[in-house]
Design a protein around this nucleic acid. Sequence first.
DNA 1: ATGTTC
Length: 478
Amino acid sequence: MTELKKISEYKWEVPQTGNMRVPGIVYANKSMIKALEKEGALKQVANVATLPGIVRASLAMPDIHQGYGFSIGGVAAFDWETGVISPGGVGYDINCGVRLATTHLEEKDIKTKVADLVNALYKNIPCGIGSKGSVKLSVKEEKKVLEQGSKWAVKEGFGENSDVDHTEDYGCMPNADPDIVSERALERGRKQLGTLGSGNHFLEIGVVEEIYDPEVARAFRLFEGQVTLMLHSGSRGFGYQVCDDFLAFMVKHARKLDFELPDRQLSCAMIQSEEGKRYFNAMACAANYAWANRQIMMHKSREVFMRTLEISPRDLGMTLLYDVCHNIAKKETHITEGKKQVVCVHRKGATRAFPAGHETVCDAYRTVGQPIIIPGDMGTASYVLVGTEKAMEETFGSTCHGAGRVLSRKAAKKASKGRAIYRELEDKGILVRWRGRNTMAEEMPDAYKDISQVIDVVHGAGISKKVAKLRPIGVVKG
DNA sequence: ATGTTC
């Protein structure tokens, strides 16, 4: 059991002990802390704090739970020259992320068409484990996807240039090197572009239920009653294979490290080593794959809306608000003790939250800050937030990524026995179509933390600010 | 998350 020291209402410290080079900082409320102290995630926060080059603190967001090596909901920045990079600090689903598109439609415009829309999305966008067949790629074209990300998708007719502008990093990490990913990863990736995947991945039709910040909402073109489309997916089998390959690769080279790993799952390499560079450049390929993947699916959804509702692109007005990644490591510059420092920020189940004025925030949002998309579970709300200066000062410009699990998949299956989850959702006005036999049980709302509490913590702590709340009305699950 | 154990 790891004990926490209270710093403020929403901020708790894991005191620096043993080999920890810095303390841990957990953003949470009192009731979350009680549950956290009983499980392994805090030990993982402490373990990360022992790694070389870690700057300031090992951070955890309120949706923290135990993951592979690093906790999910964790943020850790390592000095670019003296620090490490770790596949476990990124996660298996490299550049798993969420995007939100707004439309010109209001709920009343589609009230009688929700079932048609959900059915058409389910039919036109392959989903489920092992799903394939949305876009066919030659080996040569696949390498272009890995190098170009969203830009490749738009060039091939899947979307518009403004979609690229409204994607974190413009949907492309520039250092991607397709020649260093395995044949097996390439093989798995070739058939899966434009597919949703399974588990917590989804497509969701929503309605803007509440606006908290009218000025920022205006900049984001959000209004009450507006129909939205949210998409949660990642880099599919390709990213999984890259992660798997490099975990093995780093274990093989572990004896080159001159420090002790508290957990084998934290296998890593110095950022400046050959191994570290290789992982970083392979990870970038998977990041670009994921961006192209989400771009293609959003564009196909656009076409589904136009066909199903028999309306023009102009009347639909489906525009990408923003696309965020929540499993990634990035080279960024941050201010430490008044000085600029280049760091490798690992966000695993955490979202970038850059403030107004930051040079990486696209023109459309430069004056208000970066949009942040936070999905809840499929039975409750999702949120749009905006990045803040305080996030820059405290969390390397980072915030939470979602509700966070409270029940394991197995426990959720047990808890759902004798219940028809889809029916319970239907009674709440949410129509669901799903592929996997166990998906409804494993993803039931009871399996997740209360998203409103998670949002309260990040808003209360000031590491992002509430802009709007969305209510789901139609969901496609893998 | 994941052709859920090459």
